[in-house]
Amino acid sequence: MKNEMTQTPLLQIDALEKRFALDHGFLETVKLRKGRIRREKREVHAVNGLTLDIKRGEALCIVGESGCGKSTVARLVAGLLNPSNGSITYDGKRIDTLTRREMLPYRRKMQMIFQNPYASLNPRMTIEQALTEPVKHHHPDLSAQGVRDKVVEVMRSVGVDPAWAPRYPHEFSGGQRQRIAIARALTVDPEFIIADEPISALDVSIQAQVLNLMLEAQVERGLTYLFITHDLSVVQHFGTRVAVLYLGTLCELSDTATLFANPKHPYTRALLSAVPKLDDQAPNHIRLRGEIPTPIDMPQGCPFRSRCTYANDRCAVERPVPAPQPDGSLVACHAVEEDRIETV
């Protein structure tokens, strides 16, 4: 394990950008401005120059407010979207430029789990059919009995009674469905799992069941995770490292323990302080001013400055870049660099 960690990262995201066109038809792009007709193309800047490695065997968590680009990163990595700029390298091979055909072997190695398990389970297929299909596809030499055995084994491993194999997804509870979706992802022996808010729709007791399953799979199969969530207590539990995103840019990247013990970026601090804790007697959080800006007109300078209490003139014009800190974390903030923030 130690050895593997020092090898090249499993996934390298470099200067990744994704913009979505906001107006689709030609007419929508025609605008009347100051009495003159102009053609404007507005874009959503969902991901803005993200650079990030994921090491083998680790669980890298991405956190941040809704709309900050987490799902877009996941879909870019999974090859479901094409980047506007930058590159994605998997196991030393650049994958963002591959054709669908060339991408196929990577589709098996990388599996995606969504918040809504219906996104990965066909409602008209029984659980058995849903699990049999990928097993057959990826183990074409298995006998019919071998396939059945594998399906039973997979169902057992996620704690779902194999006797329920002939049932349809709607007959299962949300937690069971998500465990089945995970089982389906695991049937093809992937190396890398991209999980986009896999437990956000589940109750606490059920979240624990699903998280345990994902932890077990990580240990037993040496899986690597890109884990997206907005629940920081889950990150603290599950993550090896954490990337904090704001408006599609990286604020802070750090070991999980370091991040929670010593958050540095003003946004990370506000985010951590906002999590209600069991022993809190009253809300006590760092209040941010203003509203979350939309990623349509990306602000100049620091993306966080409109809500930041430490913002100064430099923050208004110069975009901070992630800079290494003495404890190994990366932080993109002028105030941190200028030592204007008191340490906790």
């Binding site: 606490v204 007791s205 624990a208 207590s233 539990h237 599950f238 999980t256």
Partner: peptide
């Protein structure tokens, strides 16, 4: 319910589901 919360278990350990 309380024990199942991730913050009630050491990071990386099995949660008490």
């Amino acid at each position: 319910l309380i024990n199942a919360l991730p913050q009630q278990t050491l990071p990386g350990e099995k949660l008490r589901q």
